[in-house]
Structure formats: C-alpha cells, structure tokens
Design a protein around this nucleic acid. Structure first.
Length: 602
RNA sequence: GGGGCGGUAGCUCAGUCGGUUAGAGCAAAGGACUCAUAAUCCUUGGGUCGUGGGUUCGAGCCCCACCCGCCCUACCA
C-alpha cells in the first residue's frame, strides 16, 4: 500500500469552467482517486482555484469588481460545480489564502538561497495609466513586415511572423486603447539551465518506467533541449509579494502566477494537514519513503496545454528548493520534496467539431450541463469517449446516444430487470442451489473483471477500463436471455430460479462496484436498490471555513472517504429485501439534441 | 517557420515484437424473446488503414516526401 497524491490541475478563476476543462482534469482524476482508495491506497487528493494573473485583473475591471471580489465569486461557483460533479477532493482550496502565500514565499526563499534565481533587466511593455505589465497578447498594432493592422504583440496572424511588441507600428493596448510604454525592469529568472541535468535524469528514469503516455514523455524531453531561464516575477499589483528586502513592499512587483499556482499542490497538502489532527501529516506524501517508511507516489492530472508547467517548471522548483541542481544547495523547512511520479495529461475536447469559445458561444458550462442532465451521464461520456489519448469531440447527438443506448439500455436495464425479477418472484435475495457450468462461468468472468478494470484504471487507460466493464455487463445481459428465468414457473423449478437470480444479483452488485469510480452517484442509488446503505462511494461536500492565519473565510471542498469499499467481490446477504426499483438513469428525449444545438452560437 | 501528437467501417475508437482472412461498440437490415426505462439476445452487411514512394518473404505498424487536424513554440493562464 502506498501514499498516493492525486494532484489535480487548478481551474483559473476568470470565469465559470466549461465541460472541456473538467473532461481533461476532473473526471479522470476522480476515477483514478476513487479506484486507488478502493485498492487500499492512502490517497490525498488536492486542488484549488488559481486566482492571480493579468486575466483576473482584466475580468475584474470589466465586471467593475476588485480582483479579490471577482475571485471570490468564481471560486465559489467553480467549487459548487466540482462538487456537483462528485469530484472527491480531500481539499479543494484557493491561491489567495494566507497559508498559500506563506508556502509560496518559503519556496521562493529556499530557491533563492540555493542560488537558482538570477536577476535580469528586461525590456517590457507597461500600461502608463496603471503601471501594470502589458503582456504581449494584449498589445496590437500594425505589422512591420506585412502592414497588417491587426497584428498581436507576439505574432502577426496575417503573415505568421513572430514579432517583438516594440517593433509594432502604432502599438495599442487591447484593454483600454492607450499606447503602451516600454520600460526597463528588473526580474528574477529561474535558472532552468542549471537544473536541466537533474530534470533530464528524472525524465529518463520516468521514461524507463514505461508508465507515462508516450506523447507526454516525448514532449517533456523535447522542451528540455531548448531550456532557458524564465522570469518568475511580474510588474503587476495582483499577486504574491516577493519576500526579499527591497522587493517585499513594492506594490507593482509580484510573483508570476505560474510560480505560485503549481506550489498550490504543496500548500493545499499542508493546509489539509493543518486542518486535521497532525499538521505534519502532509510529509508522508511529499518527502521520500525513507522518512516515512511508506512509498509515496504522485500523479498530476491536467490538459495538454499545461504539460510544460508540470514536467518542467514545477519539478525545477522542487529540485531548486531542495538543492538538487548544478549549483547544489541545502535543505529548507519542507525538506527533500518528491518529483512527480507521473504527469497524466489529457488531450482536448472539442464542441461539435469546433474549439470551445466563450465569446462565440461555442461552449457548455459545467453548471448548465448539470442543471439539465445527470452527472453520471456526463461522467460516462467522458470516461468512454473523452480526450484520453487524442482530441475528441463532444456532440449532443453522441451524448444522447451514449446515455440512452449504452448507459440506460445496457447497464440501467440490467439493474432494472434483475431487481424486478427478484422482487416479483421472491421479494428478497434468494439462496443459491447447485451452480451450473454457465453460472460458474459468469461468476468467474465478472469476478475477473475486478483486476482487469482496476489495472487499466491504475495505468490511466480509462476508456479501455470502462469498455471492459461494459462488456461484462453485456455478458450478464446475455446470461439473462439464455437462462430465461421468466419461464421457470413451477414449484420444482423454484430452486433453479432462485439460483439464477442469486447469480444475477451477485453479478450486478459486483459490476456496480466496478463501475462505481466512474458512476459514483448511480452506484450509491443501485447499492440502495439491492438493500445496501447507499454509500458505496462517499461524496464531497462544501464547508465554509475560516482562514487558518486570520485572513477572510472561504468555501472549500472536502469529504470523508474512509468508507470506500474494497475492490473485490463481497458475498450477498441472502434474505435482503428487494422491491421493484424506479429507474436509476434518465433516458433522454432525442429532441434535446436540437434544443441544445439551438443554444450554441452560430 | 521549428518541435510534438494524430488521420483505421456511416459514427466513436482498439490494433502488442512487422506475421494467417484488419477488430469492438454504436448506427443499418433481418430474426428471436417478453423479466426489463421498446429494453435484451442472435445473425448479416459494411474498410484502397490520409496520399505517393521505399525497405522486406511479408507493412495499419518501419523509412522518405506530401496533405489535413490539434497542442507547444507567450511577460495568457
């Protein structure tokens, strides 16, 4: 048994999240975490809302709010969405807590003391009215090469050339139209070249493990070839202060949002421990096994656009903090911090063949989807048709089809016919008599599905895992048809009838457990149908908490997942009363396809 | 422009070390059945594996070129 850290990408607080976001990091991380708990591992699942950076400032200005007010609103909304999806975080927090500020500043100081920051003067654009950095993408002007007047600061969309913003003719801020000012400014750069050897060694060892998705490991190794120092500070007034004399109180110098966001995995683990019995408990997931006696594994879940930050920037910060690069260095308060065991990156979900775009209304927000459909229907779609190894397309017709023809007609129907047959004939789970060869074969097949599906989930092959489970569902449906229990009406056939229904009930209860990491809500409902407590899969909840260090209170997602069932068959309780169930899954009217398409922008 | 990943049945996707006649689910057509949310089960049809070359006894898989899609190449996150 191991300590397993499920580190889930931090949603950005500039607005509500759409289903593409949660398809990439949410559902896969939750399926994995729920399974790992059932397999007996000690899982710590953390994430939170990422609330710093320029886009938050801009969104706040547009909404007439302060950045903190905007972040407060969006943090709450995102937390509600993730809870409604059933994502079983031990702690879902945010980056504007005092705890996070303190952890980030400790990391900065450690990296700085170990010598992995270099100070450099750069030439950059600022907005004269606010003094804030104006990132390249927010500058537009006339391309000096082709004369196109809508060129962005970094690239001209017309001729495709890469540009420097100060080369643009007639540059303008896209935010307020003013002319940017180009100034010299001092920043701290993370000395990535001094960490490149250590990163290479780590990636080579990870590649040798053979567990990473091939494109993720190849991409990670490739970006290492052109590694260069990256600025970890910005001219901005919204962010975490730089904890150094002369910088600390500068209102317009802050840490780069990505420097702080990835540290969230650590700060959330520490916050979780501080809210529990032992404030040092986080170390079992972060420090090497020799310190805690138990193997510590860490899995990071995200979309492919975040690979750089998880396979380069974050491991570099960890290495630098614990003095493991070319420049050496010492250990600090957090000790020797583990590098990621695996970076599990999803590809992208598209929407009806197009990229998601809030402005063009090619989008469906998580809360809109969940207000009209069951969370498990969406989770089923993502698990079976999501962007696991390549981009995949969400279409309403495919969503309706998967829900109706696979989830309802395949699995829902098996649950329904099994419970109804038992309710009508016995009213309780009957005892089994002698098993036939067919009974044995089916029982063995279903029991063998536990390790098969479990191994696939552990290897992050969830599409194949749920496919395997659904094939077992089909086998059980076939068994019902072949054994024709409805024809066994006479008294001398009653024992055989009871045996068939006992076998069926056992298989359905088993399959419910196997499907429960994917379909936690319906797993609980089905558990209740078969006489259980309805608590096969514990659910997350939102708590309103105080800031641990005197800041403003905020909502978190947390939960008690210690009740997770073991991954394997548990025998039926003969005599458990069963009544005719109401349908667990809602069949969708095909008219919803047109209704939903009408909501999308042209 | 550079780096990476992908293109296989109407749709969504598997395809291991290069090895028999390229598979699954859904959709379609026909049949069986009635316990079940008209659900289930059986059978059948369906493919120039993006295009063009090459290596090989043998290529979906390896090599070269090209076409198409996506991600990265940002002081956006």
């Amino acid at each position: 048994m191991s300590k397993v850290l499920s580190a889930v990408a931090w949603p950005y607080a500039n607005g509500p999240r759409h289903i593409g976001h949660v398809a990439g990091f949410g559902v896969p991380s939750d399926v994995f975490s729920r399974y790992m708990r059932m397999a007996g591992h000690d899982v710590l699942m953390v994430s939170g809302t990422d609330e710093h950076g320029t886009p938050i400032l801009i969104a706040a200005d547009e909404a007439g709010l302060t950045p903190q007010e905007l972040a407060d609103q969006n943090h709450r909304m995102i937390a509600e969405d993730l809870t409604a999806l059933g994502i079983s975080y031990d702690l879902y927090t945010r980056t504007t807590t005092r705890n996070h500020y303190a952890v980030v500043q400790e990391m900065f100081r450690g990296v700085h003391e170990n010598g992995y920051f270099v100070e450099k003067t750069t030439y950059g654009a600022i907005s004269p009215s606010t003094g804030r950095t104006l990132p390249d993408r927010y500058i537009e002007g006339t391309c000096p090469i082709c004369g196109y007047d809508g060129a962005r600061g970094d690239q001209c969309d017309s001729c495709g050339n890469q540009l420097d913003p100060h080369e643009l003719k007639d540059p303008k801020s896209k935010i307020n139209g003013e002319t940017p000012e180009f100034i010299e400014t001092q920043h701290f750069f993370l000395d990535l070249p001094a960490l490149a050897d250590a990163l290479t060694e780590w990636l080579d060892e990870r590649e040798a493990s053979g567990t990473w998705r091939p494109n993720v490991i190849r991409f990670s190794q490739n970006i290492l070839k052109e590694i260069k120092p990256r600025a970890m500070t910005r001219d901005i007034d919204w962010g975490i202060p730089i904890p150094l004399e002369g910088w600390q109180d500068n209102p317009t110098k802050k840490l780069y949002v990505w420097f702080d966001a990835v540290i969230g995995y650590l700060s959330a683990s520490i916050e979780w421990a501080r809210r529990g019995d032992d404030p040092e408990a986080w170390r079992a997931w972060w420090n090497p096994a020799s310190d805690s006696g138990e193997e510590a594994l860490s899995y990071y879940f995200m979309g492919k656009d975040n690979i750089t930050f998880h396979s380069q920037i974050w491991p570099a910060e960890l290495l630098a903090y614990s003095g493991r690069g070319d420049k050496g260095g010492g250990l600090h308060a957090f000790g020797h911090l583990n590098l990621p065991t695996e970076v599990v990156s999803s590809e992208f979900l598209t929407m009806e063949g197009r990229k998601f775009s809030s402005s063009k209304r090619v989008v469906i927000y998580v809360r809109d989807l969940l207000s009209r459909y069951q969370p498990d229907a969406f989770r089923y779609f993502v698990a079976s048709a999501g962007p696991e190894n390549q981009d995949s397309d969400f279409t309403w017709s495919e969503f309706v089809r998967r829900t109706n023809d696979e989830l309802v007609a395949g699995w829902g129907n098996l649950v329904s016919r099994t419970a109804t047959l038992i309710a009508k004939n016995f009213g309780q789970i009957p005892p089994a008599g002698e098993f036939t060869v067919e009974d044995r074969r089916l029982l063995d097949l279903v029991e063998g599905t536990f390790p098969a599906v479990g191994d696939l989930i552990a290897a992050h092959r969830q599409k194949q895992a749920i496919g395997q489970a659904m094939r077992a569902v089909a086998e059980v449906n076939k068994y019902v048809t072949d054994s024709e229990p409805w024809t066994l009406k006479s008294e001398d056939q009653r024992e055989r009838l009871g045996t068939i229904l006992h076998v069926l009930a056992q298989c359905v209860v088993d399959l419910n457990l196997i499907l429960s990491p994917f379909l936690p809500f319906s797993a609980n409902a089905i558990h209740a149908v078969f006489g259980g407590t309805g608590e096969v899969q514990p659910m997350p909840r939102i708590d309103e908490v105080d800031d641990l260090d005197g800041g403003a209170g905020y909502p978190i997602i947390t939960g008690d997942y210690t009740g997770a069932r073991a991954w394997g068959r548990s025998p039926l309780q003969v005599g458990t009363p069963i009544s005719k169930p109401t349908p667990v899954f809602t069949k969708l009217d095909t008219a919803v396809v047109d209704e939903e398409l009408a909501r999308l922008g042209g």
